[in-house]
């Protein structure tokens, strides 16, 4: 009754399915190990968010060829960072922020997005300062990072840091995340043995206050009882110079 050909066919089908499943599992595991977004990679300007960048980059290296400063390289197998995708190490060679963004122009897939029009708007990473080893924080007038910063006074400023009355004030660098592109020129320039200012992906170093904190001294907002956390609120349009205490509205 049992057709031997049919039995053979079903056996082969099952074997094929098992082979495909096991192969697919091993392959999928390799992918999950290799192709995961690498949290520490510093990407070229205009790079999409890490997961999308990983998926869209075809690993051709045209950005690397286009880079006039030999900043970019493709991560080699075994290196920390997704294999074959472009990265750079600011302490070796930082990004000198070409105005015409040749790396982004060279990208054929859009992994380096053409939506980036102005290099100052790029966000390759964010500079952070180790104040235990920063010379300025020891009281020296170093300030090299500030002077070398391509958008100084916006991305890095020098702040007066007063101390006790008998000691002179510190003049310390302060990074502003709203302007820092993460180019890494500061990290390259830092004179300490290990850079005391270094660039890391913003996601790795930047905190988030949370929407339920309301800095009353900063935002001109009305305090109400029906506030719900997470609600996006626009500052109420209060004409400048209006002082409610003098208006008799209370």
């Amino acid at each position: 009754m049992a057709d031997p050909k049919r039995r053979e066919f079903i056996t082969k089908l099952a074997q094929g399915a098992a082979l495909a499943c096991s192969g697919g599992m091993v392959w999928g595991y390799l992918l999950s190990q290799q192709a995961k977004a690498s949290p520490t990679a510093i990407r070229p300007p205009g790079a999409l968010p890490e997961a999308d960048f990983n998926a869209r980059c075809i690993k051709c290296g045209q950005c690397v060829v286009a880079c006039p400063y030999d900043t970019l390289r493709l991560a080699a197998p075994g290196e920390n960072g997704a294999i074959g995708t472009p990265v750079f190490t600011p302490r070796d060679v930082p990004c000198y922020m070409c105005e015409d963004i040749p790396c982004m122009q060279a990208c054929p897939t859009g992994a380096l997005s053409e939506e980036l029009k102005d290099i100052d708007d790029s966000r390759m990473g964010l500079a952070i300062i180790d104040i235990e080893n920063c010379l300025s924080w020891q009281g020296l007038r170093c300030e090299i990072c500030y002077r070398d910063c391509p958008i100084k006074d916006k991305a890095i400023s020098i702040e007066n840091h007063p101390r006790k009355i008998s000691k002179h004030a510190f003049f310390v660098p302060l990074v502003h995340s709203d302007a820092c592109t993460g180019c890494g020129v500061c990290e390259k320039a830092c004179p300490t043995d290990e850079a005391a200012i270094r660039v890391l992906p913003a996601k790795l170093v930047q905190g988030e206050i949370g929407k339920h904190y309301r800095l009353g001294w900063k935002f001109d907002t009305e305090i109400t009882q029906d506030f719900k956390p997470g609600e996006e609120e626009d500052a109420p349009a209060v004409p400048s110079g209006l002082d409610y205490l003098n208006e008799g509205t209370l």
């Binding site: 690993k59 290296g61 690397v64 390289r73 493709l74 991560a75 080699a76 197998p77 075994g78 290196e79 294999i83 074959g84």
Partner: peptide
């Protein structure tokens, strides 16, 4: 891995 290795550096490839 092979052509990237030749052009851009091989690593553990």
């Amino acid at each position: 891995m092979a052509h990237r290795g030749v052009i851009y550096g091989l690593g553990l490839g």
